[in-house]
């Protein structure tokens, strides 16, 4: 939850910098509740990407979530209704924490433990977004240089996410995706660049595995 707060503040600031109102930014955080997808939304507003593309890219970005259920299933309460409630709260960070800690929790208490972890993270995310959205507006008016620094939050976040995900033999895929998408973005095709990056990265991964 401590790690969530600064990213949520960053989203709030970047959201207002992208032209969203405070309530809009907070609603996006409360409803979507997926950091990478939310920042994709901001990047798409900036790039003028059609919304149908944004939704398609969000679907691709979220495919990784399909892996969390099977890995956590043996640790969670068996009641399907409870699992479906907990599913809304299953972010990357909540999954990582639960996967590492849930086994040490008594089976009878696991449902409540997961709900507390997930709700705490969700509320932290919304609160951080609200702080960022509020601070971002004031900064723009009173401290223009600070506001310029805050607009750097979006490229900084994606740089951090890319560097942290380029591990475990994925360096080549990420480098190929960056190069391909970068070339298309330089030519002005920013929407196409995102999709091309995904395709090129997966192809590089397959080629490397075959080699």
């Amino acid at each position: 939850m401590i790690g969530y707060f600064p990213v949520a503040v960053t989203f709030g600031i970047a959201g207002t910098a992208a032209g969203l109102t405070g309530p809009q930014v907070i609603l996006v955080s409360a409803l979507i509740y997926a950091g990478a997808s939310q920042f994709l939304l901001l990047a798409s507003i900036k790039a003028g990407t059609p919304w149908i593309w944004v939704v398609a890219l969000c679907s691709l970005l979220n495919v990784r979530h399909l892996l969390y259920g099977p890995l956590l299933a043996r640790l969670l309460p068996p009641a399907r209704r409870e699992r479906l409630r907990l599913a809304f709260l299953l972010t990357d960070e909540v999954f990582a924490t639960a996967f590492n800690r849930l086994e040490s929790v008594a089976p009878a208490r696991r449902g409540r433990w997961m709900a507390a972890l997930g709700l705490g993270a969700w509320l932290t995310w919304i609160a951080g977004t609200a702080v960022g959205a509020h601070a971002g507006d004031g900064l723009e008016r009173h401290f223009p240089m600070l506001a310029q620094v805050m607009r750097f939050a979006l490229p900084a976040l994606f740089t951090a996410l890319v560097c942290q995900s380029a591990r475990g033999g994925l360096g080549l895929s990420v480098a190929a995706a960056l190069a391909g998408a970068g070339a298309l973005a330089a030519l002005g095709h920013t929407s196409l660049a995102i999709l091309a990056g995904a395709v090129i990265g997966c192809l590089a991964f397959r080629l490397r595995r075959r080699a």
């Binding site: 970005l61 998408a181 990056g197």
Partner: peptide, 10 residues
Amino acid sequence: PSLLAGIAAA
């Protein structure tokens, strides 16, 4: 990771 790299580049 590839999709994140694509978004970062864009």
